[in-house]
Nucleic acid binder design. Structure first.
Lengths: 140, 140
DNA sequence: TATTGTTATACTCTATAACTATA
DNA sequence: TATAGTTATAGAGTATAACAATA
């Protein structure tokens, strides 16, 4: 493990730069970060209450109301009712939403691997070897 | 290397989830992603023209005008003139801007290593072993 | 005439405060 | 009275179009 604060900050700077790189891989005139992330949650974990989505995304309930309204307007998600509680709004992804995620993902994978191709085989191997660990890190 | 499209997309999904994780490591009521990234460019590469910053950040010139105006209002950056070309605005980071980056970085490093501590030693080692490769990837 | 930057306008995204409807 | 969600309002962040100043 890295013991010194300076060493830890150096690693954090690398993550900072990696974050900036991944951010540029995002198609611009597309979904916002929160909209895309919300759609991914619906895709992978199924329907959610609006308030659950707000909590998972770390935004307020009014902000999520708007995000869901825009997703619904664009036919990427739908609002539904909860038969057991009239106050609740249940949000789900639509087939068009799944399609969009699929296309975005393919486009990003292409750009990412084009970048990885510019690295040395050793660097590429080091990154790919860390993928399972990153996957578990992202579970946190 | 990973040959199948499905395999590449799986790797891209891991990066997507990693991106979401790093995004949540960001202190909220703080700088925007673009403002922070712009400040980092000024910190690491020195003063830039406003148009250079816009190009590096991938935003329009009017958007960067506003970002710089807010940074200047908050005393994190300053506008200066170019003695050789009266049209040009040269932007530089202030000591307060450097301080802010330093504090953000320390806070992020702390959160990041608290997360890494929850992984197995093997996973942690795999991620740390990939750091130099990521650093070179971020140079792209 | 071309380049550099700003201003005008409009839309997304976010927050806090106030509100409505249901429990 | 408490909870789930929406509406109202304000500010950041972005884009395109139009403009001003300098080269």
């Amino acid at each position: 493990m890295i013991e010194t604060v300076a060493g830890q900050v150096a690693v954090a700077v690398t993550f900072e730069r990696l974050f900036a790189l991944l951010r540029r891989l995002n198609p611009p005139h597309d979904l916002s970060l929160t909209a895309a992330s919300t759609l991914r949650i619906l895709e992978s974990d199924g329907p959610h209450r609006l308030s659950e989505l707000a909590a998972k995304e770390g935004v307020t309930q009014p902000a999520m109301t708007q995000v869901v309204s825009r997703l619904e307007r664009d036919a990427l998600a739908v609002r539904g009712a909860d038969p057991h509680d009239g106050r609740v709004v249940v949000v789900d992804i639509t087939p068009a939403g799944r399609d969009l995620l699929r296309h975005r993902r393919a486009a990003r994978a292409e750009k990412l691997f084009a970048l990885l191709d510019t690295l040395s085989p050793a660097d590429r191997a080091a990154i790919l070897a860390a993928i399972p660990a990153f996957d578990r890190l992202a579970d946190r």
